[in-house]
Simulated scan of single mutants.
Amino acid sequence: MPGRRGRRAGFCAALLTGFVTSLVTVGGVGPAAAAATGTPAAARSAARVTTAVLDLDHPDRKPQVRGRDVPYDTASIIKVDILATLLLQTQDAGRGLTQQERTWAEAMIERSDNDAANALWRRIGLAPGLEAANKRFGLSSTVGGTGGKWGLTRTTVTDQIRLLRAVFADAGTSSASEPALTTASRNYIRTLMTRIAAGQSWGVSAASDSGWALKNGWLQRSTTGLWDINSVGRVTSGTHHYLVAVLSDGNTSMTGGIATVEHAARAAVTAARAAG
């Protein structure tokens, strides 16, 4: 699994290419917003951030939540949920992914490709398809974005931990008894989340000593010019594995939001380790 080395490699390129390819179609961010170099004077609200951490070696415990557990925009972290939904639907149909679906899935998770996400969002049946799957994953506070706006799906950190449990908790634990996803489906998602492009491998990985698996989301809102910056995944710290979700909004820049998310992830995992 990836380590810290290379986490910042290509970061400047990601700020440029990710800004163009990952924001224009997500949540209605238009070219004018994408070209903006500053934050509108009217948009000066303070950023907020919420974290949740679950010790995967003690899955019966409740997640430790820091901050208000309220809904945030998902931006591209929803792509994990889209893939989980697709896999659940194909399981129900008694088939595997087609080659085209695999190509889309790998581009969507590893490179955060929006065209691939658009295709799979339609394939799963948009928000209704996502929400039907989420009921089976145990999510209770996630509402799919309207129409094609999957990046404006709203979720909470506790729901993201529930989704991560559906992907990372091993069968046989009480948190994963009769899992909705098969072992093959869970392993597929996990593998893709360890192959994130170097310029996008920031976020919860900052809290890891060694291995990590993650998906990040970043979105500049056209109404305010402020940024949603999110990161979810599994990290290894000490001898334990942790599921970590960090959601934030109101950031005045992408780089500042990333710094906020990484600081929050490190503090949350440190607190979880101290709790034993």
Rank of each mutant, 00 (worst) to 15 (best):
V26D: 02
T90P: 04
T153C: 06
A169D: 14
S201K: 12
R122P: 01
A42H: 08
V244I: 05
H263Q: 15
M193E: 11
C12G: 13
T223D: 13
L83K: 11
H241V: 00
F11L: 14
G138S: 12
R123L: 04
R122F: 11
L97W: 04
G3P: 03
R266K: 15
M193A: 09
G138E: 11
W212I: 03
A116R: 10
G147N: 13
R61V: 10
G96H: 12
F19S: 09
V246A: 04
L139F: 05
W212Q: 05
I77E: 00
T191W: 09
A93T: 09
V49K: 00
G144S: 03
R111D: 14
T236A: 14
A127P: 08
H241D: 03
A267N: 15
T252F: 02
S253I: 05
R4T: 07
A274N: 13
S208P: 08
P31V: 11
I229E: 00
R273N: 07
M254H: 08
T98C: 12
T90L: 06
L243N: 01
C12T: 15
A46W: 00
D159Y: 02
A265G: 07
G94S: 05
Q200F: 06
D55S: 11
L97R: 02
T182E: 09
L247H: 08
G250K: 12
Q160F: 02
G147W: 10
R7P: 04
M193S: 03
A52Q: 06
P40N: 08
S177Y: 09
G3M: 06
P71I: 09
G18F: 09
K215W: 03
R44T: 06
T239D: 10
A206E: 13
H241C: 02
T103E: 15
H58K: 12
D60Y: 12
H241G: 07
S177L: 14
G3L: 07
F19N: 07
A117I: 12
Q100L: 15
P59C: 07
H58W: 06
M1R: 09
V235I: 07
H241T: 01
S205L: 03
G30K: 06
M108T: 07
H263G: 06
F11A: 13
R273P: 04
G238S: 14
G233Y: 02
P40C: 09
A259L: 15
I196M: 10
E262T: 10
A207I: 09
R66P: 03
T194R: 03
Y188P: 14
L87D: 05
F11Q: 12
P71W: 05
T183N: 07
L87V: 08
S112T: 12
T17I: 14
H240T: 13
I78P: 03
A180E: 13
A271Q: 15
S45Q: 08
G145I: 01
L23G: 04
L243K: 01
R234H: 01
V232K: 02
I77G: 02
A264R: 02
S237V: 05
